[in-house]
Amino acid sequence: MSSGQLDDEYDREEAEAIAAALDLTPDELNEIEYTINEIANDDGLVYAYGVEIKEGAPQHILDRLAGLPRRGNLVLIHLAGDAHDADQEQMEIEMARTTVYKVKLYNIATDEVVISRRMATYEGAAKMGGWPVEGTGHVVDLADLEPGEEWTPRDFDPTTI
């Protein structure tokens, strides 16, 4: 088998795994444009994958994806075939959670302190130029944070998760 054939085989197997994780057929998956995003912690441990569906996807496919877990515009999936032992799985479960807080920010335009529409970890609050509001912490999945960031999407409500 040539290198090109191996690449084609790998791409086909990957597409089949993604289609299965999205509960779609390979033909339905071919109808949409998408990208796969790794969702990882600060140490680089990948704990989830998110599929970003590009604009223009047929409505019947969007309807099929509507019931799947989401994080913003990403449909969260688990790709079968990843071998996990019980200790590694427990470690990933423990590492896949963090605490976010309401964040106070100084608004230079109004010379006022305001509450951000996002919640953030301590590190995220500092990156935003703000500080966490003590007593407002909520433990959330890392998948609830914006990909690659230390804060949630705007208007995040941790009581609905």
Rank of each mutant, 00 (worst) to 15 (best):
N41I: 00
D85Y: 10
H60D: 13
K54I: 04
P132A: 06
I115F: 05
E38R: 15
A57V: 07
Q90P: 03
Y106G: 05
H138G: 01
I61W: 15
W131M: 07
P132D: 02
G50L: 00
L76G: 08
R97K: 13
T121Q: 04
G137V: 06
Q88L: 15
K102R: 10
E89R: 13
G81T: 03
T136V: 02
E112S: 10
E55I: 03
R118N: 00
I36W: 11
I93A: 10
E89A: 15
A86L: 01
G50M: 04
R117A: 11
T98G: 04
R64P: 11
D87S: 08
H84R: 15
A83C: 08
Q88A: 15
D43L: 07
E123V: 14
T121E: 02
M119Y: 02
G67Q: 00
G130H: 00
D42N: 08
E52R: 04
T136E: 01
G135T: 08
A83T: 08
Q88G: 14
Y122E: 10
H138Y: 12
G56H: 06
Y49Q: 11
A40G: 01
T136P: 03
E52F: 14
E134V: 04
P69F: 00
L105H: 07
R118V: 12
Y122K: 07
I115M: 08
D42A: 13
R118H: 06
V51K: 06
K127F: 09
E134I: 11
G124M: 10
V133Y: 01
M128R: 07
